[in-house]
């Protein structure tokens, strides 16, 4: 399974899903109006990754660093889809740590994380910057 890397764009975040280290990163801003074009390949990749993981349990631990400073409402559903897939992997036995980074002043972003947590029954670690 090859890692997935996407460079930061004007309205899209940087993405680094490193399969060798089992460290995933999503960082920056996600405010593209063409969210489908950006997120669809990512969701597809993650779905494949999930299948690959289930067959190949070489590593049981994955760290997901969520460092989006801002995401628009169009991105929210895709972010939800990402966490949903991660949750499915957790249910299958993978140890998944989600680190949710937020600016200490940005309580809205903290609340967003807590909502995803609540909906999915997923425990996040919060890191205030």
């Amino acid at each position: 399974m090859k890692s997935l890397r996407v460079k930061k764009g004007d309205t899209t975040p940087e993405l680094d899903f490193d399969v060798d280290k089992m460290e995933f990163l999503l960082e920056g801003e996600s405010r593209s109006e063409d969210v489908l074009i950006f997120y669809e390949p990512i969701i597809n990749w993650l779905t494949n990754f999930k299948e690959w993981f289930l067959k190949n349990e070489s590593s049981k631990k994955l760290d997901f660093h969520f460092k989006l400073e801002y995401y628009n409402s169009l991105s929210a559903k895709f972010i939800f889809s990402i966490f949903k897939i991660l949750k499915e992997m957790q249910v299958k036995g993978l140890e998944i740590n989600v680190f949710w980074f937020y600016d200490v002043l940005d309580e809205d972003l903290l609340e967003c994380g807590e909502e995803y947590e609540k909906i999915l029954g997923f425990k996040f670690e919060y890191i205030a910057l």
């Binding site: 969210v35 409402s73 169009l74 929210a76 559903k77 939800f80 909906i119």
Partner: peptide, 21 residues
């Protein structure tokens, strides 16, 4: 209401963001 839309399966209707905005 936000969560209801977020978790609904109508994920293909992204044209208007399904009203989340």
């Amino acid at each position: 209401w936000y969560n209801e839309i977020l978790t609904s399966e109508t994920s293909s209707s992204f044209k208007g963001g399904a009203g989340l905005g």
